[in-house]
């Protein structure tokens, strides 16, 4: 589904160049739920931004569903964002001027789909994620957990190849975090969604099939979930300590 080969990305600050991603290699299979963890400055968000093509990368290849994402023109990139990727952001990124259902349908509306099927699909997603009762409410009128479930539903409206989630539980309390993770599990189990999530939260990561640990812009370790969730979380915490424990 996703292949990242020898990915390099650097930033310049004045005359100094900082290597943020230093030859990343990874793959994500169809239907897999993968998390990326690592200390601050390890390059997690930069990796996500490169995969989502929000920022250009210096060297390497990213292939999504067989399509090389390097050097795509703007039109093709928009299509990738719209059709092949779904996004879930830390601060939800919902439009305050639209109600929940309209926010969910937004990617389809952008692509020019104005069919009744779209509305039907939006309603279905509301049902799946338990937000039907608030579908006519505006973001200012709902809780953080509900906002993030709306964002997850929105990310699935176009049945993308992959959902990219950037710290989706970062702004939520533990109860709401659990609800959002459940949403991802729902998406994975019922909609065969592939999810790639960047997180600091070992609890959230422990629900994933696989966790990629990043350190200094390179893959430090890959942990696969072979045990039950609680033990896997312990394993993650150990690995974090091993990386000199910048992660809480």
């Amino acid at each position: 589904m996703l292949q990242v080969k020898d990915l390099h990305k650097s930033y310049k600050a004045g005359k100094i160049t900082y290597e943020v991603l230093n030859g990343i290699n990874l793959t994500v299979a169809q239907g897999e739920f993968v998390a990326v963890m690592g200390p601050s400055g390890s390059g997690k968000t930069t990796l996500l931004n490169c995969i989502s093509c929000y920022i250009p990368f210096d060297k390497g290849h990213i292939t999504l569903g067989g399509q090389d994402l390097k050097n795509l023109n703007e039109e093709s990139l928009s299509k990738v964002h719209n059709k092949k990727l779904g996004f879930v952001f830390q601060d939800f990124m919902l439009l305050d001027g639209l109600n929940v259902l309209d926010n969910i349908m937004l990617p389809r509306i952008i692509s020019g789909d104005t069919s009744e099927a779209m509305e039907q699909r939006g309603n279905e997603l509301c049902d799946i994620f338990g937000i039907s009762h608030i579908k006519n409410k505006y973001p200012a009128e709902i809780s953080g957990g509900e906002k993030q479930r709306t964002a997850v539903a929105r990310s699935l409206i176009n049945e993308p190849l992959m959902i990219l989630a950037d710290e989706p539980t970062g702004n939520l309390d533990s109860k709401s975090s659990r609800t959002v993770i459940s949403s991802f599990e729902e998406a994975k189990n019922h909609l065969s969604a592939t999810i790639f999530m960047v997180t600091h939260d070992s609890f959230a990561a422990s629900f994933c099939d696989r966790v990629i640990m990043l350190k200094d812009g390179a893959v430090y370790k890959v942990l696969e979930k072979k045990t039950e969730r609680g033990a896997f979380q312990e394993e993650l915490l150990e690995a974090i300590k091993e990386m000199s424990g910048d992660v809480a």
Binding site: S78, M93, S111
Partner: peptide, 16 residues
């Protein structure tokens, strides 16, 4: 900017 950023993130083209 927020509005445009969300639209672009969800696949709207600059032209749109």
């Amino acid at each position: 900017s927020r509005e445009a950023g969300i639209f672009m993130a969800l696949g709207a083209s600059r032209g749109q």
